[in-house]
Each structure stands twice: as structure tokens, then as C-alpha cells.
Deep mutational scan, measured.
Amino acid sequence: EPEARKIVEKLINNGLSPEDVKRWAEKNNNPEVKKAAEEYQKR
């Protein structure tokens, strides 16, 4: 999901860690963003 990846990169560029992004995604019920954050961590 390229859109989710863009969101993850934007949040990380704004100073969030991938863990923060995953928590944000869970709080906002956004499994695509959570998955993208996990993939981002593996890179």
C-alpha cells in the first residue's frame, strides 16, 4: 500500500519512531499503516 508507506515516512520525518507510528496506527485503527511501519523497520 504506497499511500500507507507515504504516511509512515511522513510521520517518521516528523520525528516519530516506527514504534510510535505503529501505536498511532493502532489508535487510529489503521492496519495498513501499521503494516507499512513494520515493513519500514525491516529495511
Score class of each variant (00 low, 15 high):
35 K>M: 08
11 L>T: 01
21 V>K: 02
6 K>Q: 12
9 E>C: 12
25 A>Y: 02
17 S>E: 04
7 I>C: 11
21 V>G: 02
23 R>C: 09
18 P>S: 08
4 A>R: 02
41 Q>V: 09
8 V>Q: 01
7 I>M: 09
40 Y>N: 04
31 P>A: 11
24 W>K: 03
38 E>T: 04
39 E>F: 01
6 K>W: 08
4 A>D: 01
41 Q>W: 08
20 D>Q: 11
15 G>K: 03
22 K>V: 15
9 E>R: 10
43 R>K: 13
23 R>N: 12
29 N>C: 11
10 K>Y: 14
28 N>M: 12
14 N>W: 09
31 P>C: 11
17 S>G: 05
40 Y>E: 05
36 A>E: 10
5 R>V: 11
37 A>K: 01
23 R>H: 11
4 A>Y: 08
20 D>C: 09
26 E>D: 12
15 G>Q: 05
6 K>Y: 07
14 N>D: 14
20 D>S: 05
41 Q>M: 14
43 R>V: 13
26 E>N: 00
1 E>Q: 13
41 Q>R: 06
34 K>N: 05
43 R>C: 10
37 A>H: 01
3 E>Y: 02
27 K>S: 12
21 V>W: 00
33 V>N: 01
18 P>T: 09
34 K>T: 08
10 K>R: 14
15 G>W: 03
40 Y>K: 03
8 V>K: 00
12 I>C: 06
2 P>M: 15
28 N>L: 08
6 K>I: 11
38 E>G: 03
41 Q>L: 13
21 V>A: 04
42 K>C: 10
8 V>N: 00
2 P>S: 15
19 E>W: 00
5 R>N: 10
19 E>T: 06
5 R>Y: 11
2 P>K: 15
20 D>L: 05
37 A>G: 02
14 N>H: 13
2 P>F: 15
36 A>Q: 07
26 E>H: 00
27 K>W: 07
4 A>F: 07
6 K>M: 12
31 P>T: 09
20 D>V: 04
16 L>A: 08
24 W>Q: 04
19 E>S: 07
3 E>W: 05
16 L>V: 07
26 E>Y: 00
10 K>M: 14
25 A>L: 04
18 P>G: 03
18 P>E: 04
34 K>I: 12
41 Q>C: 11
5 R>L: 11
42 K>H: 09
9 E>S: 07
3 E>Q: 11
29 N>P: 01
4 A>Q: 02
40 Y>F: 10
6 K>G: 06
35 K>F: 07
34 K>A: 13
6 K>T: 11
39 E>H: 05
12 I>E: 02
